[in-house]
């Protein structure tokens, strides 16, 4: 494809702008985390570190349970993702491949749940969880995260299911497959990109959630990364080096994860997200 020069220039400029917008903050955080304290808060910030130290990381890992927070976050996010998928896939299948009375009403009810101001249920939910002994448990966080991710997940699956030609399903059914088998053997492989997208969405929702985790979790051993991170911010003093090291470390796992699944997520979203 040929492009006139001025469009190439415009494109390059736009790409540079977005690259700067997205990457510059990360560059500053990562390089900041190895700067000496005085350089981090210097009146004239430096783009390239003039000093180098790993003290902030050493302090972070020695004195806080960062690896534990990370483990908790991984557990909570993974389980949330799994349950979201388990609930969303059959629901999506029924909503978009079957017809039944009340379908539209129920689908709209699910979408309404998406419009839910989450802060509204913080207190009542705390009371309910307290009654059934779920306060200070990772299960509570999983439940909350699934509730927040599920409506969007169902909606996201919609065009994937809708895009499957009816004949394929019909053929499988004529071969004597029960709906469960049709779902498992035929549908799931066909909507795999959509499932990838839903999985990443659910994972990120859980990984980044802060408010509920901060109130529902009481003990240090069960904290997730966002709550653990807010813990090192400190009340009367801020140790920016420590914070930047903490920020870098909490970015790292999702970046690694995304290096593996990012392509599918993007492919999933772009193939079927919006119609």
């Amino acid at each position: 494809m040929k492009r006139p020069i001025r469009w190439t220039v415009a494109l390059t400029a736009a790409l540079a702008l977005f690259a700067g917008l997205v990457l510059l903050p990360f560059w500053l955080v990562l390089t900041g985390s190895v700067k000496a304290p005085a350089e981090i808060i210097a009146r004239q910030p430096t783009m390239v570190p003039h000093s180098f130290t790993l003290d902030h990381y050493a302090k972070l890992l020695a004195a806080s349970d960062y690896p534990v927070y990370m483990m908790n976050s991984l557990i909570v996010a993974s389980v949330s993702t799994l349950i979201t998928l388990l609930l969303a896939i059959p629901a999506g299948y029924a909503f978009f491949r079957m017809s039944f009375p009340g379908r539209e009403t129920l689908y709209r009810a699910i979408l309404l749940a998406y419009a839910f101001p989450s802060i509204v249920i913080l207190i009542p939910l705390f009371g309910i969880f307290a009654k059934i002994g779920l306060i200070d448990s990772r299960i509570a966080l999983v439940l909350v995260n699934v509730a927040f991710a599920l409506p969007f997940a169902v909606w996201l699956l919609r065009s994937f299911f809708a895009g499957i030609p009816a004949e394929i399903e019909e053929a499988a059914r004529l071969d004597g497959g029960s709906p469960f088998i049709v779902l498992r053997r035929i549908m799931i492989p066909l909507v795999a990109p959509g499932i990838a997208a839903v999985a990443v969405f659910a994972f990120v929702t859980a990984w980044t959630e802060y408010v509920f985790a901060s109130v529902m979790i009481l003990s240090d051993a069960k904290r997730t990364v966002p709550v653990g991170f807010s813990g090192i911010i400190g009340q009367y003093q801020i140790d920016w080096g420590l914070l930047l090291a903490g920020a870098s470390l909490s970015i790292l796992p999702v970046v690694v994860l995304f290096a593996f699944v990012g392509r599918w997520f993007v492919a999933g979203l772009t193939e079927g997200a919006v119609k």
């Binding site: 388990l86 609930l87 059959p90 129920l106 009542p124 709906p179």
Partner: peptide, 24 residues
């Protein structure tokens, strides 16, 4: 069958969102 497929999701959302909303 369709209700069996969507039931868990609906019940889940009812318990986690609607019930607390009623309490609110």
């Amino acid at each position: 069958l369709p209700y069996a497929f969507i039931g868990p999701a609906i019940l889940f959302l009812a318990a986690l969102l609607v019930w607390p909303l009623v309490q609110a």
